[in-house]
Write a protein that binds this DNA or RNA. Structure first.
Lengths: 149, 149
DNA sequence: CGGAATTGCTTAATATCGCAAGTGATAATA
DNA sequence: TATTATCACTTGCGATATTAAGCAATTCCG
């Protein structure tokens, strides 16, 4: 009954922040050379991986809130990284697609990005790495099923 | 030699974001009732857990960058949640400490916060939960040792 | 001792986050 | 078919993130 919080050193939210920070540091420094933010990079990757899709799909896949994404897309459109089209049947919706310039940015960074990912994987060990991904999925999935009414 | 990126659905940075988002949602809604942001909550917890300490220590322990923390502290001082004192020997430094009002905010929320943490732990299972914390530590530690030259 | 780093923190600038509200368009339904 | 939801964004706002400067206090060293 006497509730106590876990020490901050064993707090899941804090450890998630730290891990993310650690993982992103080299990626951010890579992207800085291309003038990209990590969010813009995520949008490019999602568009490249899943092809043309609407804003809501991109938001889900890149884990961005629609209001944030809305502004990010404006910037990326100005930079010529993506294009937007009205959806045929539904004028509320717009279809996003990556431009050749956008794909070029991915191509420029893909080798280094893959190397960074491999390095982390190597440091953790393949088993640990996969286990971590699965556990993170589990956290998200469980939480989702609770939230989704 | 032909480098490819992992699918975004198996990308560590993206899964970290999603997990964090899932874990924080209920915590944020709890804190909103007390008029706190999650960062302010982290600062309070660190001050409560480690006692009076300087700004840099708080930044490290709460995983906040100094520029961000600088503003957060100003707000928290205005709210009466913390106090600041000049360090005795080093006038560049200031010592932060939690006020009774700040501690009261922690006390008000501690039960619910612990319950939220327990719920996540229960959903994952104790073993998975501990394994996840350990793996996250590993990510951070390994990355640190790489960065710390 | 005294100028050159370094340290501890703040300010500035730009971008994103998270919530709430607004807008136009489409779907649902009485 | 005239509402009444919903949906797909977009805008506004307050707060934080990240990088780069700036400043004052300390420490290093020649």
């Amino acid at each position: 009954m006497n509730k106590t919080l876990p020490l901050t050193s064993r707090s899941l939210p804090i450890l998630l922040i730290r891990a993310r920070e650690a993982v992103m540091a080299p990626i951010r420094s890579m992207l800085a050379d291309s003038g990209l933010t990590e969010q813009q990079w995520r949008v490019l990757r999602v568009l490249s991986e899943y092809g043309p899709q609407d804003t809501t799909d991109v938001a889900d896949r890149a884990s961005l809130l629609l209001p944030s994404l809305s502004r990010i897309l404006r910037t990326m459109t100005e930079k010529g990284l993506i294009t937007r089209q009205q959806h045929d049947g539904d004028r509320r919706r717009q279809i996003l697609m990556i431009t050749p310039a956008g794909q070029a940015v991915i191509d420029e960074n893909i080798a280094e990005a893959a190397a960074i990912a491999d390095a982390i994987k190597a440091r953790l060990g393949d088993e640990n790495y996969e286990a971590l991904l699965d556990l993170l999925d589990l956290v998200t999935a469980e939480q989702k099923s609770q939230t989704s009414k």
